[in-house]
Simulated assay, not measured.
Amino acid sequence: MNFNNKSLLITGIGEFVGLRAAEKAIAKGMKVSGLQSSADKAKKAQNMGAKVMIGNITNPAITESACQGIDIVLHTDEIAKEGGSIEEFREVNVGGTLNIAKAAKSHGVKTFIYISSALVYGFNYPDRVTEDGPLSGENNPYCQTKIEAEKALLELNDPSNFGVIIIRPGDVYGPGSIPWIVRPLLLMRQKLFAYANDGQGVINHLYIDNLIDAIFLALEKETYGEIFNITDGQETSWKEYFTYLAETAGLPAPFSLPKDELKLFLKLRYQGQKLFRKQADILPEVVDFMTRPYAYSIDKAQKILNYQPTINLQEGMHLTQEWLKKTDLKKMMP
């Protein structure tokens, strides 16, 4: 696929992944437009030269309008948090995803690429788990609705008319990442951050630019109907990652707590915030996300897409450090 002059619609264009994808796509000569629910978040993409429509993917009139004259849809918009009401998640992550996909199909969009998540495997999966699974919703609304959205999308896949590609990223970090950079550092500054069980297990980190490279490789090769795990391909323990992150920001190394103690502390903290009507900054379920045991396999992406991550953890943290020097992290939080 030749990208020059192709029209690309990015949902969630003002968010972490959408914004970097827009920047890279514009550099490739693509005509980039976007859909964003918040006018404030749309500004950065607009300043890059993208046309942005303000609206929600759950609104059929908005999605119909956004998909007119588009060749490719990159769907990044989602509710991404550790817990909450399944109905709220399902409305956006499943209903909204189907809404934008059906609008795209009806308007003759040729390619629909969906940013899912490796969390479709849940929290306890086999070492080097491949795209064949097993999948597990873990009674968690994020994991469950990502599985449901993938299944519904693959039913729409029609390679000659409407090709669907699914990317399952690992833990995406880099300048602007809320869960893996901004929030941990803000908690570390308050001496409130701990990892569980001595930081055992594996964070499947993925530098943002490596993810965007994989997206364009999948588009270039038109791998319709396929699903790809994407990570940096490094086996880094949770302890190593968070210690490195603290060093990058010039902070003391975080400490460890047993998993059950950490969950209890976060539960009590969450209940206190709720009592005083403060917005919760972290949910107890985060501990399940931060104690996953193994690496995901990226063999398929390496073989089919010729995907080779070009930015390792050391370089990714250096690039993040440069960004941290000029960023007020408090302003990054929703």
Rank of each mutant, 00 (worst) to 15 (best):
S7M: 03
T11W: 08
G14T: 03
G14M: 02
V17T: 13
G18V: 08
R20W: 08
R20K: 15
A22P: 07
A22M: 10
K28V: 04
M30Y: 04
K31S: 08
V32L: 02
S33C: 12
L35M: 14
S38R: 15
A39Y: 07
D40H: 10
K44E: 15
K44A: 15
N47E: 15
N47R: 10
I57R: 03
T58C: 15
I62V: 15
E64C: 03
S65D: 11
S65L: 11
A66T: 05
C67V: 12
C67Y: 09
C67H: 09
I70D: 02
T76V: 13
T76I: 06
D77H: 12
G83S: 15
I86T: 05
F89T: 02
R90S: 12
R90L: 03
R90P: 01
E91H: 11
V92T: 13
N93Q: 07
N93E: 05
G95I: 12
I100N: 06
I100K: 06
K102I: 12
K105F: 00
K105P: 00
G108R: 15
G108M: 15
V109I: 10
Y114I: 02
S116H: 06
A118Q: 14
L119T: 08
P126Y: 09
P126I: 10
R128F: 13
V129I: 14
V129P: 05
D132M: 08
D132P: 00
L135P: 00
S136V: 01
N139W: 06
P141T: 06
P141W: 09
T145K: 11
K146L: 01
E150R: 09
E150Y: 10
K151R: 09
A152D: 11
L154I: 14
L156E: 03
P169A: 09
G170Y: 07
Y173L: 12
G176M: 06
G176A: 04
I181Y: 04
V182L: 09
M188I: 08
M188W: 09
Y195Q: 07
A196P: 14
G199K: 13
V202D: 03
N204S: 10
I208Y: 00
D209R: 03
L211P: 07
I212M: 07
F216Q: 01
F216P: 00
L217T: 04
E220Q: 13
E220D: 13
G225Y: 01
I227M: 01
N229W: 03
D232K: 00
D232C: 02
F242H: 12
E247S: 02
E247R: 07
A249K: 05
L251M: 09
P252R: 09
A253F: 08
A253G: 00
L257P: 00
P258T: 06
L262I: 13
K263R: 14
F265L: 15
F265V: 14
K267H: 11
R269Y: 11
Y270W: 14
K278R: 14
D281A: 11
I282M: 12
L283V: 04
V287S: 07
T291V: 11
R292S: 10
R292F: 06
Y294C: 02
Y294P: 00
A295K: 13
Y296S: 01
S297K: 04
S297Y: 05
K300W: 02
A301I: 05
K303S: 10
Y307L: 14
Y307V: 10
T310F: 02
I311F: 13
L313H: 03
Q314C: 01
Q314N: 12
T327E: 10
T327N: 11
L329M: 13
M332A: 05
M332E: 15
M332S: 06
